[in-house]
Computed example of a mutant assay.
Amino acid sequence: MRKTKSRNPYYNGPASDHFNGTHFFNPDGIEPLGFGDLLRWQFGGGRQPWPKSVPSPYAAAKPDARVDGEDLRVTMVGHATMLVQVAGLNILTDPVWSERVSPFTFAGPKRVVQPGIAFDDLPPIDLVLVSHNHYDHLDIATLKRLHAKHRPRVVTPLGNDTIIRRAVPDMEMTSMDWGERIAHAGISIDAEPAHHWSARGGADRRMALWASFVLSTPAGKIYHIGDTGFHHGINYKAAQQKHGGFRLAILPFGAYEPRWFMKGQHQNPREAVRGMKLANAAYVAGHHFATFQLTDEAVDAPVKALQEAMREHDIAADRFRPLRAGEIFDVPML
Rank of each mutant, 00 (worst) to 15 (best):
T93A: 04
P49T: 01
L92G: 02
P95H: 08
N26M: 08
L72D: 02
V67F: 05
S56R: 01
V86D: 00
E70F: 01
K62D: 14
P49M: 00
H23E: 09
G45T: 11
D94L: 03
H18R: 07
M76V: 02
S53E: 11
K52M: 09
P63F: 05
P95V: 07
W50L: 11
R47M: 13
P55L: 09
W50N: 10
L92E: 01
D64V: 13
N90Q: 06
L89N: 09
G78W: 02
K52S: 02
L39Y: 06
Y11F: 15
K62P: 04
W50R: 09
G45K: 10
D28V: 02
R73E: 09
T81A: 13
H18I: 03
N90V: 06
G36K: 06
P95S: 06
A61C: 06
G13V: 07
T75M: 07
N90W: 02
P9W: 08
D94A: 11
S56V: 00
S16N: 09
E31G: 12
G88E: 00
I91S: 01
A15F: 06
G36Q: 12
G34D: 09
L92V: 07
L39R: 09
V77C: 11
V86R: 00
E70W: 03
G29W: 03
G46L: 06
F43C: 15
D28P: 06
G46D: 10
A61E: 01
R40S: 10
F19L: 02
L89F: 02
R47K: 14
V54H: 09
E70M: 08
Q48V: 13
F35H: 08
Y11T: 14
S16I: 14
Q48M: 14
D37N: 13
D17Y: 15
E31C: 04
L89M: 11
D68L: 08
V84H: 00
D68S: 05
G36H: 11
W41K: 14
A87C: 01
V74I: 12
L72G: 05
V86P: 01
L89V: 11
V74H: 02
P27M: 08
